[in-house]
Amino acid sequence: MNVLQVRGLAKRHGQKQSLVRAVDGVDLDVPAGQTLAVMGPSGCGKSTLLHLLGGLERPSDGEVWLAGERIDTASERALARLRRRSVGFVFQAFHLVEELSAAENVELPVLLAGSSPRQARRRARLLLEQVGLADRARHLPWKLSGGERQRVAVARALANEPLVVLADEPTGNLDTAATNEVLRLFAHLRAEGQTLVMVTHDGRVAATADRLISMRDGMFVEDTWLAS
């Protein structure tokens, strides 16, 4: 089954001479359990694509289906619910709440989804253990290394067992060792069957995925199966 299904997707900004076709008519099927990397130079539209897939932006044209549910025409309320429960985001700049501990950052989306504080605490403890940061649960983000912060962000993205994790340059702010920490975590998620879509300009990061799509000027120019 396809977790994501996209048809004729387009996103345009501006008008007439200043018209920018950020995403210019793409089709995409992502089956459950696949890890997909979308690679391209900055400005090729890959981040916009990711935002459209996760309901952070609405397309100018085309359709986005998430697990059989059409999301590009969904109401604001339905979209907000979807972003909380069905999609997990990981960003380049982590976007952790600096005033909250690692555990509290992970608890937050669980609480927002309507669980009890006790359930949220239990879930956060489990996830931090899974990303190898059980001993950092009480630390504030600034006391963590870059790789640790991104692992907390991944734990938070997994909080509500999302259908898909969407990662935007997840290693863009990290050195080689921290990049490998995060990529090892992704490898672990893949082994557990988590569907993952990441966008990156880094060939080594992209090469870890099962499948690689190259994007230029808003279009897919190549779709390669990497896994043997």
């Binding site: 060939g203 080594r204 090469a207 870890t208 995925a209 390669t224 043997s228």
Partner: peptide, 16 residues
């Protein structure tokens, strides 16, 4: 490029 990316895929998986 596709051939090299497949090789990089194998190498990266081995590194991880």
């Amino acid at each position: 490029r596709r051939e090299l990316m497949r090789r990089l895929h194998e190498t990266q998986r081995a590194i991880l």
